[in-house]
């Protein structure tokens, strides 16, 4: 078991024939992802990486039965691409693109919600179900199969966390990078519940950062709904207020969005909070033994 995706998931790639799309689609196929085709407007009818290219998402779904789209469309056009996926009937769009205008993502997210499409990202490493399906840009080899679910705003901290979990002798069911932009798709709450419902997942690692209040909402949700042990790290305890720390959403505004208030809320909800990402592996071992 796993959440959201497995070896049978049929995936199309939007922005299939571009540089990034090509490179990562190939890596995903090597990992075992069932990529059934891609979309590049104007290149319909061609074959790319041995798979059919379509002009529109609708045509791609009709021909392949795809339910998930991996989106590599450049930032200026990504809002449009996500709305196209939503109205064509895609069930989950994984948006890798970095630097999407917030206004566009606001509209795209609203359109996705209206059409019942889940989204992940933008500006995220994607999602991986260990040994089955990778939809994103993470190095697949570090994600050994196991019983820990992982949710993270940061790409490299996802790798860091997964690697430590594996080094402690455990492994990953599914890891989801939700992205660090101001407006994102699936967030901690929904994903925590999916891991709670997944029989194979025994513990959950959640990695957050400064800015916004998603982690505070997650803490409240954990307290009421999550029985499985949760380990958390919040990046940015040493970040100065008012400065944007790399991610568009990683900014402390006034006294809101600090690492401390998030860590306190999570701790109060019974979460095992670590002060350094170097402690994630040990903390997982502790909650599982």
């Amino acid at each position: 078991m796993s959440i959201l995706i497995d070896k049978d998931t049929k995936v199309i790639v939007q922005g299939f024939t571009g540089g990034e799309g090509t490179f990562h689609a190939e890596q995903c196929m090597d990992y075992g992802t069932n990529i059934v085709g891609g979309v590049t407007p104007g290149k319909g009818g061609q074959t790319h990486l041995g798979k059919p290219v379509f002009n529109t998402v609708k045509e791609a779904i009709d021909a392949t039965g795809a339910t998930v789209s991996m989106v590599f469309v450049p930032p200026a056009f990504v809002g449009d691409a996500v709305m196209e996926a939503a109205s064509a009937g895609i069930e989950l769009a994984v948006i890798i693109t970095e630097g999407a205008p917030v206004r566009d993502m606001q509209a795209a997210k609203a359109c996705a919600v209206k059409n019942g499409m889940m989204t992940i990202g933008p500006n995220c490493p994607g999602i991986i179900t260990a040994d089955e399906c990778k939809i994103g840009i993470m190095p697949g080899n570090i994600f050994k199969k196991g019983n820990v679910g992982l949710i993270s705003k940061s790409g490299t901290l996802t790798y860091e966390g997964a690697n430590q979990v594996v080094n402690e002798g455990y492994g990953i069911t599914t890891a989801v990078g939700i992205g660090g932009d101001p407006i994102i798709g699936l967030s901690y709450k929904q994903l925590l519940q999916m891991f709670e419902d997944d029989p194979e997942t025994e513990a959950i690692v959640m990695i957050g950062e400064i800015g916004g209040d998603l982690e505070i909402q997650a803490a409240a949700y954990i307290k009421e709904n999550i029985k499985k042990p949760v380990v958390a790290f919040i990046a940015g305890q040493t970040a100065p207020a008012g400065k944007r720390m790399g991610h568009a959403g990683a900014i402390i505004s006034g006294s809101a969005g600090t690492a401390k208030e998030k860590m306190d809320a999570l701790e109060a909800a019974g979460v095992k909070v670590v002060v350094s990402p170097a402690e994630i592996g040990k903390a997982v071992k502790e909650v599982l033994s």
């Binding site: 790409g155 901290l157 660090g180 950062e209 040493t238 720390m245 790399g246 991610h247 990683a250 002060v275």
Partner: peptide, 29 residues
């Protein structure tokens, strides 16, 4: 992506989250 702080240990990291996590770990130590 660079932001100056007032400490003593220079950091060079890939990824914004890990970069913040590295600063936090230095502080923790």
């Amino acid at each position: 992506s660079y932001i100056a702080l007032d400490g003593e240990i220079g950091c060079m990291v890939n990824g914004a989250g890990l970069a913040m996590g590295t600063m936090d770990t230095i502080n923790y130590m």
